[in-house]
Structures are given as C-alpha cells and as structure tokens.
Measured scan of single mutants.
Amino acid sequence: IINNLKLIREKKKISQSELAALLEVSRQTINGIEKNKYNPSLQLALKIAYYLNTPLEDIFQW
C-alpha cells in the first residue's frame, strides 16, 4: 500500500492529534498508519478521506 496520509495531512495543516480527534482514534493509530505499521479498515480509510476532503485513492493506493 502506498500511503500519502502524512503528506496530505501536513499540506492541510492538520496535526496527528487533530485528525485523531476527528476520527475518534488515538494519535498513535494515525502515527501507525503514516508509518505503514498499521493498515486502516475500509471504514477508517473512508473517514480519513472524508475529513481531509481528499479522494481515497489519492491517500491510499493499493
């Protein structure tokens, strides 16, 4: 999986903590996703895309 979450999140000036709060997950979860240590569920990936107002395929590429 190619993961552009960190790049997109930083472009939008959103911290890991802010995104985690919006998604109701821990900051460690966001960190793990960004470091490719954790693959989000489809539901979480869709929520990330929604809150970042970015197409899912721009954030994650399988």
Rank of each mutant, 00 (worst) to 15 (best):
Ile1Cys: 15
Ile1Ala: 10
Ile1Lys: 10
Ile1Tyr: 14
Ile2Lys: 13
Ile2Gly: 11
Asn3Asp: 02
Asn3Glu: 01
Asn3Leu: 04
Asn3Ile: 05
Asn3Met: 04
Asn3Gln: 05
Asn4Pro: 03
Asn4Leu: 05
Asn4Arg: 09
Leu5Gly: 00
Leu5His: 01
Leu5Met: 12
Leu5Tyr: 00
Leu5Asn: 02
Leu5Phe: 03
Lys6Leu: 06
Lys6Cys: 06
Lys6His: 07
Lys6Gln: 12
Leu7Asp: 13
Leu7His: 13
Ile8Tyr: 09
Ile8Lys: 03
Ile8Leu: 06
Ile8Pro: 00
Ile8Met: 07
Ile8Gly: 02
Ile8Phe: 08
Ile8Trp: 07
Ile8Thr: 06
Arg9Phe: 04
Arg9Lys: 01
Arg9Thr: 03
Arg9Ala: 02
Arg9Cys: 04
Glu10Leu: 11
Glu10Val: 09
Glu10Arg: 08
Lys11Arg: 12
Lys11Met: 10
Lys12His: 07
Lys12Glu: 07
Lys12Cys: 08
Lys12Phe: 04
Lys12Met: 10
Lys13Gly: 15
Lys13Trp: 05
Lys13Val: 05
Ile14Pro: 01
Ile14Thr: 04
Ile14Asn: 00
Ile14Cys: 05
Ile14Met: 13
Ile14Phe: 08
Ile14Gly: 01
Ile14Tyr: 08
Ser15Thr: 14
Ser15His: 06
Ser15Asn: 05
Gln16Asn: 03
Gln16Trp: 03
Gln16Asp: 04
Gln16His: 05
Ser17Lys: 12
Ser17Glu: 13
Ser17Arg: 13
Glu18Leu: 07
Glu18Pro: 03
Glu18Tyr: 09
Glu18Ala: 10
Glu18Asp: 11
Glu18Cys: 08
Glu18Gly: 07
Glu18Met: 10
Glu18Trp: 05
Leu19Met: 05
Ala20Thr: 03
Ala20Phe: 01
Ala20Gln: 03
Ala20Leu: 02
Ala20Ile: 02
Ala20Val: 02
Ala20Glu: 01
Ala21Glu: 12
Ala21His: 11
Ala21Arg: 12
Ala21Thr: 11
Ala21Pro: 01
Ala21Met: 09
Ala21Lys: 14
Ala21Asn: 12
Leu22Ala: 15
Leu22Tyr: 15
Leu22Cys: 11
Leu22Val: 12
Leu23Asp: 00
Leu23Glu: 00
Leu23Lys: 01
Leu23Val: 15
Leu23Cys: 15
Leu23Ile: 12
Glu24Arg: 13
Glu24Thr: 08
Glu24Ala: 14
Glu24Phe: 09
Glu24Trp: 07
Glu24Tyr: 09
Glu24Ile: 06
Ser26Asp: 14
Arg27Gln: 15
Arg27Cys: 11
Arg27Ile: 15
Gln28Leu: 10
Gln28Met: 12
Gln28Asn: 14
Gln28Pro: 07
Gln28Asp: 15
Thr29Lys: 07
Thr29Gly: 04
Thr29Cys: 15
Thr29Leu: 15
Thr29Gln: 07
Thr29Trp: 09
Ile30Lys: 01
Ile30Phe: 04
Ile30Glu: 02
Ile30Gln: 01
Ile30Val: 12
Asn31Lys: 15
Asn31Trp: 11
Asn31Leu: 11
Asn31Thr: 07
Asn31Ile: 15
Gly32Trp: 12
Gly32Leu: 15
Gly32Asn: 15
Gly32Asp: 15
Gly32Tyr: 14
Ile33Met: 05
Ile33Ala: 01
Ile33Cys: 02
Ile33Lys: 01
Ile33Leu: 10
Glu34Phe: 05
Glu34Leu: 04
Glu34Cys: 04
Glu34Asp: 02
Glu34Met: 02
Lys35Ile: 13
Lys35Pro: 01
Lys35Arg: 13
Lys35Thr: 15
Lys35Met: 14
Asn36Val: 04
Asn36Trp: 07
Asn36His: 10
Asn36Ala: 08
Asn36Cys: 12
Lys37Trp: 15
Lys37Tyr: 15
Lys37Met: 15
Tyr38Lys: 12
Tyr38Asp: 05
Tyr38Met: 10
Tyr38Pro: 02
Tyr38Ala: 09
Tyr38Gln: 11
Tyr38Gly: 06
Asn39Tyr: 14
Asn39Lys: 15
Asn39Gln: 15
Asn39Gly: 12
Asn39Ala: 14
Pro40Phe: 06
Pro40Cys: 08
Pro40Thr: 06
Pro40Asp: 05
Pro40Ile: 08
Pro40Ala: 06
Pro40Asn: 01
Pro40Leu: 08
Pro40Gly: 03
Ser41Phe: 04
Ser41Asn: 09
Ser41Thr: 12
Ser41Gly: 12
Ser41Met: 04
Leu42Arg: 12
Leu42His: 09
Leu42Val: 10
Leu42Ala: 07
Leu42Met: 14
Leu42Trp: 10
Leu42Ile: 12
Gln43Lys: 12
Gln43Pro: 13
Gln43Gly: 11
Gln43Glu: 14
Gln43Val: 10
Leu44His: 03
Leu44Gln: 07
Leu44Met: 09
Ala45Asp: 03
Ala45Phe: 03
Ala45Ile: 05
Ala45Tyr: 04
Ala45Gln: 14
Ala45Met: 15
Leu46Ile: 11
Leu46Ser: 09
Leu46Arg: 11
Lys47His: 05
Lys47Trp: 04
Lys47Asp: 06
Lys47Arg: 14
Lys47Pro: 01
Ile48His: 00
Ile48Val: 06
Ile48Pro: 00
Ile48Ser: 00
Ala49Met: 03
Ala49Cys: 06
Ala49His: 02
Tyr50Asp: 08
Tyr50Lys: 11
Tyr50His: 12
Tyr50Asn: 08
Tyr50Ser: 08
Tyr50Val: 07
Tyr50Met: 13
Tyr51Ala: 13
Tyr51Asn: 06
Tyr51Val: 15
Tyr51Gly: 05
Leu52Asp: 00
Leu52Tyr: 01
Leu52Gly: 00
Leu52Trp: 00
Leu52Ser: 01
Asn53Ala: 11
Asn53His: 11
Asn53Pro: 03
Asn53Gln: 13
Asn53Thr: 08
Asn53Arg: 09
Thr54Glu: 09
Thr54Val: 11
Thr54Lys: 03
Thr54Arg: 04
Pro55Glu: 06
Pro55Thr: 07
Pro55Ala: 07
Leu56Ile: 14
Leu56Tyr: 08
Glu57Gly: 10
Glu57Lys: 11
Glu57Ala: 11
Glu57Asn: 12
Asp58Asn: 08
Asp58Arg: 08
Asp58Met: 10
Asp58Gly: 04
Ile59Cys: 03
Ile59Tyr: 01
Ile59Lys: 00
Ile59Arg: 01
Ile59Val: 06
Ile59Gly: 01
Ile59Asp: 01
Ile59Glu: 00
Phe60Lys: 00
Phe60His: 02
Phe60Ala: 01
Phe60Cys: 05
Phe60Tyr: 04
Gln61Trp: 11
Gln61Met: 09
Gln61Asp: 11
Gln61Glu: 13
Gln61Cys: 09
Gln61Gly: 13
Trp62Arg: 09
Trp62His: 10
Trp62Pro: 08
Trp62Ser: 11
Trp62Ala: 10
Trp62Gly: 09
Trp62Leu: 14
